[in-house]
Computed example of a mutant assay.
Amino acid sequence: MKLDDKDRIIITMYAEDPDISQEKIAARLNMTQPSVAARVAALRKEGGLEKQLGVNPIKMGMYLAKVEASCTAPRDVLKKMRGCPYFAHGFTASGRRNLFMLFFSESITTLESIVDCHLRSDPSVSEVDLDLLITSEKDFVIPIRMKPDLCDGAPCGIEHSCYECSSFKEEKCLGCPATGQYRGNVLGRAVASAREPGSARQ
């Protein structure tokens, strides 16, 4: 993608104020608004200008965890975790620690349970490190589905339900919002009572 100085100024102005009007940009660049609109459309098409809405977990008082691991099948693990309601982002990387993921929750022990039950138990994963991120220099936005659709099985593919998990029984983990087995208050109200093992789906 080739950028000129006007493209760079447009990107910078949007980075400083995502809600800036094209009229203000046009005035800064001494261009017409339709000309700016055409440049903005081209930048968005090529990935040079992106806008993402969501929540800032640190600003909301939630915990954000960085998980690094060595893995023989990093893409498979990312594919498995992609549907997890607590999953923020994931990357494959070069080097020994070739798997990098971000998770969020209002509970530290829930984050620990996710790592223990879904990553440390995976035979393709080794040398797992979990660190809590304390501050961020810039806003970090996650496009969270605040009330996930209920599904019959866990999106991560784990076979047992939360009711069978020792972390859930010991109240260390808040449970999975996507299966209705959730006891927190950020991702939607708990509906676990309607989803006891053997009960009909509500």
Rank of each mutant, 00 (worst) to 15 (best):
R97N: 08
V128E: 13
L102F: 15
D152E: 15
I144R: 14
D129M: 04
S161P: 09
M101G: 01
K147I: 13
L111H: 02
V115N: 02
S124C: 09
F100H: 14
S121R: 07
L150T: 07
G95K: 11
S136G: 08
I144A: 13
S161R: 14
V115L: 05
A93Q: 06
S136T: 12
L102S: 00
D131K: 11
L119I: 06
S136Y: 02
E159C: 03
L130P: 00
C117V: 03
I158R: 12
F100G: 00
H160L: 08
D129H: 12
F104G: 01
S161K: 11
S105R: 05
I134F: 04
L111F: 00
I108Q: 06
F104R: 02
C117N: 14
I134M: 12
F103M: 06
F140Y: 11
G157V: 08
C156M: 05
D122I: 00
G153Y: 15
S107W: 01
L133F: 02
A93E: 07
V125Y: 06
V125L: 09
T135M: 11
T92H: 10
C156P: 01
R96F: 14
R97E: 10
H160N: 13
L102G: 00
P155C: 03
K147T: 12
I108R: 10
I158D: 02
M101H: 06
F100T: 13
T110L: 00
F103D: 01
L99W: 03
P143E: 07
D131T: 10
Y163R: 15
R120Y: 06
R96Q: 12
M146E: 13
V125N: 04
S126I: 00
L130E: 04
L119R: 01
M146K: 11
R120I: 10
V128S: 06
C117T: 12
C156S: 09
P123G: 04
K147Y: 10
K147S: 14
D129Y: 05
F100V: 15
L99V: 14
H160T: 15
S94V: 10
I134P: 00
I114D: 02
L102P: 00
D122L: 10
I134E: 13
C156V: 04
A154L: 09
N98S: 09
E127I: 04
R145E: 15
S126T: 05
T110I: 05
E159L: 12
I144L: 03
L99S: 03
R120H: 06
M101A: 05
C151Y: 00
C151K: 15
L132F: 12
I158F: 06
D139L: 14
T110K: 02
A93T: 11
D122P: 00
G153P: 00
S113K: 05
D131Y: 13
F103A: 02
S107T: 01
A154N: 09
S126H: 06
S113M: 03
D152A: 14
K138N: 07
S121N: 08
M146Q: 13
D131S: 11
F100K: 14
C162M: 08
C162V: 11
G95S: 09
R97L: 14
G157Q: 09
E112Y: 06
D129L: 10
E137V: 05
P148G: 05
E106F: 03
S105M: 03
H160C: 07
D129A: 15
S94L: 12
